[in-house]
Design a protein around this nucleic acid. Structure first.
Lengths: 143, 143
DNA sequence: TATTGTTATACTCTATAACTATA
DNA sequence: TATAGTTATAGAGTATAACAATA
């Protein structure tokens, strides 16, 4: 039986790697790390973010994002201020520059990703995107 | 703009992780590692496999699969014999037991994977599988 | 000289433990 | 006592360097 289907993971994991490889040059061009980008995205809508809440939200360890936050702050992309109400916590927020950078990087990244999807016919591409979104919404942590 | 689409990688990479997590208990039940399973799959059709050719084929470093091969051999799932024509190389091949194990594990794994796709409507599921196969064939190393 | 398989080493990423300052 | 942030340490997983045998 020469062509049973490959395992899903065997198809999807390399695809994920290919996408990340396609993103890396974009991130390099903007001088931002993958985790840095993830933080910028994670700081999206919500009003207040403590560091540990932010870490949990993007699936990182709280110790892991500290150097990331340091760098983003140094670049002027985020603000980090002690909460007056609880002086243990840092409130993290995007600056205007951070928001602008996030949007520019995301635009370029999604463009780069499209090239990976080039082998697909238009109908397959939209079907793939829709199916992925369903799975993404289904599996994400219940707000 | 609250709902521009998430990046592809942001959807696909976690999905790959979820699939691998769904596979792990199956592999454990069969007493085989992820890399071991990958080796069994990689030894599929081709007649002769040197260790380094096998490693390249499954995207691993040649040093990485050595303990994996040791274990598979110990379990009687593969044979490893010096090539009489070139005594530097080891020819690696599936045993009958190895082939049987590979098939059983793959059957169980693909069953487990289906549960991850459960949130999808039937049409979306087939569309996803077809799109993934196209991308998989397009991106795999040109034989 | 180059290549196969192997071992030993180093490096990267991630998680855990330990500390401080607040609460 | 418990928690947020931080730092230092340890652990996987992976890649690189070095070696013996053979070509």
């Amino acid at each position: 039986m020469p062509d049973r289907r490959p395992d899903l993971a065997a198809m999807i994991v390399p695809l994920g790697r290919a996408l990340m490889a396609a993103e890396q040059p974009v991130l390099d061009r903007h001088g931002i790390s993958m985790w840095g980008y993830s933080v910028l995205l994670g700081l999206g809508a919500e009003p207040t973010h403590t560091q540990s809440a932010l870490a949990k939200r993007i699936g990182a360890d709280k110790t892991r994002i500290i150097p990331v936050l340091d760098e983003l702050q140094r670049q002027g992309l985020i603000r980090r201020e002690p909460d007056p109400a609880d002086r243990r916590v840092n409130l993290v927020a995007l600056t205007d520059a951070g928001r602008a950078t996030r949007d520019r990087v995301q635009r370029d990244i999604q463009r780069a990703e499209e090239t990976v999807l080039e082998p697909l016919a238009a109908a397959d591409r939209t079907a793939l995107l829709r199916a992925l979104r369903v799975l993404y919404e289904a599996n994400r942590s219940p707000d």
